[in-house]
Nucleic acid binder design. Structure first.
Lengths: 223, 223
DNA sequence: ACCTGAACACCGTTCAAGT
DNA sequence: ACCTGAACACCGTTCAAGT
């Protein structure tokens, strides 16, 4: 609805919004930020740089975003959207091929993180921690997480893993493990000279298999 | 040896090194940095600030450290040293009390991380990723990790967990999981409104128990 | 409405100059 | 030897002024 109202507003305006340099400067700013973050890092991204990249003043951004944090929040938002689609695709394919969905989602998670290192760090960085006022960002992040959470619940209901554990806690723990592998992997602490020779994907599969084995063992433990 | 030579040099100097404002400005700079990081964050730490904190010019630091990164590397180094002692103490106590050492080390790991959030982030931040030229930092980090690695090996040799797995891979996976819980926990993604009601310590214990159960199940799996 | 250029208050770092 | 103060090249952000 908001989108439609915006479209009407553009239609009745003589000149399309932002057409002076770009048909949609707002999106161009986000794309340029993502591109720059991908090439370098979040820290090295400057508003001046993306301004000149787009042939625009370095203060033009403030017409579309409140400040730099707001732009980075949008970058993170688009990251979480791609992230959710990636996880969903991995889940669908695992279901189709009849392989372990949780293990495959872990591998897909890791693949996304390693293919978009800086973008991933932006998504999980301290961008929105300072201001906790990006509700749509939390929503998109939650939507991505729910793909995993729902899968855990489905596996429990199908009896393939123990239903004695709280699915939310289980999903949190699985998430944390692959998140940790991704971040330690990015810093080179799991591979190279100090490594075991295993790739990050192999480590992720190893972890999934150990955990799933543990969950299939019905032995009850002290809470 | 280097330390002793430094002491001799001080002794034969009429005026102790750096005594103009501080008996040991170098250590005072590190302490002030750690204190400031603890109160605020790594990003908000400025050389000007710690300079004025110590009643010293903002360029005085360059007499003791090559640049800001070198100071942060020292901060991280001291963090890893404390970290190793914390893990070792947890291990010793677990051995003494006869409880699960890997689970207790995970809890101790998490306790250190959450009690020193910013310092922990400095240790695992991008400080030394840019310059890979802090060999002593990697050494201290490796020493802390080895406490965990050795414990995994000991548990395998004692037959309490499956010896079929590479201990290094196992230790990496255990490390990654608790690292992930710590970082996601710091960003509030595992607790609060979106949380399960479990504390981070409970999540860590849950993970350890699932993994250890999986490792005690001797079933062989495809590599 | 949208964008600009100058200005402001920061930052890390360098360097000639002091004691 | 150790420290300082001015200067340099950055940065995000503000704001009066342009079209």
């Amino acid at each position: 609805m908001v989108l439609y109202a915006g479209f009407v507003a553009v239609k009745i305006t003589k000149k399309p919004k932002g057409s002076y340099h770009h048909p949609d400067l707002e999106q161009a700013l986000v794309d340029a930020a993502i591109r720059t973050i991908g090439k370098r890092s979040v820290e090295s991204l400057t508003l001046r740089d993306i301004g000149t990249q787009l042939g625009v003043s370095r203060t033009a951004i403030y017409r579309h975003f409140e400040d730099k944090s707001a732009l980075l929040a949008r970058v993170a938002l688009e990251g979480f959207r791609m992230f959710r689609l990636t996880l969903q695709a991995a889940l669908d394919e695992a279901r189709e091929r009849g392989v372990e969905p949780i293990e495959e989602m872990g591998v897909a998670y890791l693949g996304f993180a390693m293919a978009n290192e800086s973008h991933y760090k932006t998504m999980f960085g301290d961008v929105f921690e300072a201001h906790d006022c990006y509700p749509d960002l939390n929503e998109e992040g939650g939507a991505a997480f729910e793909v995993l959470l729902n899968t855990v619940k489905e596996e429990q209901q199908a009896g393939r893993i123990a239903a004695t554990q709280d699915p939310l806690r289980l999903a949190h723990v699985l998430w944390a493990a692959v998140h940790g592998i991704a971040l330690l992997g990015m810093s080179g602490r799991l591979t190279g000279t100090s490594g075991s020779g295993a790739t990050l994907e192999e480590l992720s599969r190893l972890h999934s298999q150990i955990v799933l084995t543990g969950l299939r063992t019905q032995r009850r433990r002290r809470s």
